[in-house]
């Protein structure tokens, strides 16, 4: 479902002496339907960079990133927009929403964008918020005022509202207590069971051991520094 081949990435900092920073080279990995692959490697090794290249908000220097039938590295913006609508979901570490929009709408939005009737979309959002222990009295408030852990759970509910065939999860269990962490791991297990291909970053080793079928060390993709 997700296949990365010979992927390379560098940043050119035009306003800092046009410094070119090669950050990744020869990255190869694949994720099959129903499989969860964990990215490991020290902070700064390129785990999030790799995820963002799959999501399409970081450009690849060269190589291929196939998600479903689309090569994200070559795709036009429109194709990536379509991919994100129906094929690829992403739970980032940060919740980015229009202020004042009620939590229930934030979670239902991916479904509304697909034309799901509003009442069905809200029912689905409500069931996820309930599972993730967000009290109903908060549903009509904007999540921008919530605690970090609550915001993260809203983000997870939003990411799981639609059953995407491919999912990117960036630290989905960080800053969650044991009870909510377990709910998230259940959601991941259910997504795998329905055939989703998941690429994730999990700092929590126990969580990683529970849901990941394999791990890939991104340090293998660090460019060799020329002497």
């Amino acid at each position: 479902m997700i296949e990365i081949r010979d992927l390379a990435k560098s940043f050119t900092l035009h306003n800092q002496g046009a410094a070119v920073l090669p950050v990744m080279a020869n990255a190869n990995l694949h994720v099959r339907p129903g499989e969860c692959v964990g990215l490991i490697g020290a902070s700064g090794a390129g785990k999030s960079t790799l995820m963002r290249m799959v999501w399409g908000n970081y450009l690849a220097a060269s190589g291929m990133i196939r998600v479903g039938t689309l090569d994200v590295a070559q795709a036009a913006p429109r194709q990536i927009i379509q991919l994100r609508r129906k094929t690829l979901g992403y739970v980032s570490q940060f919740l980015r929403v229009v202020p004042r929009v009620p939590t229930i709408e934030v979670v239902a939005e991916p479904l509304l964008n697909l034309g799901v009737p509003a009442d069905q979309a809200r029912d689905r959002a409500a069931s996820l918020l309930t599972r993730l222990n967000i009290p109903e009295r908060l549903w009509n408030l904007s999540p921008t005022t919530f605690s970090g852990g609550e915001q993260q759970r809203v983000n997870i509910a939003r990411g799981f509202a639609y059953p995407y065939p491919a999912l990117l999860l960036d630290e989905p269990t960080a800053s969650l207590d044991a009870v909510n962490g377990a709910v998230v791991l259940d959601l991941i297990a259910e997504a795998k069971a329905r055939g989703a291909a998941i690429l994730g970053i999990f700092h929590d080793e126990a969580a990683r051991a529970q849901v990941c079928d394999r791990v890939v060390d991104v340090r293998d993709f660090t460019p060799k520094v020329a002497a």
């Binding site: 940043f11 050119t12 035009h14 306003n15 963002r52 399409g56 908000n57 970081y58 450009l59 913006p77 429109r78 990536i80 927009i81 980015r96 929403v97 229009v98």
Partner: peptide
């Protein structure tokens, strides 16, 4: 929050265009 795609203009020219979050998160032009 609003745009799917983004065009960046300078001195009358489009210097960069692409997916909104790509242009903002990984800008290519100086």
């Amino acid at each position: 929050l609003l745009a799917d795609r983004l065009m960046v203009m300078k001195s009358g020219h489009v210097v960069e265009q692409g997916l909104t979050d790509q242009v903002l998160d990984d800008p290519q032009h100086a």
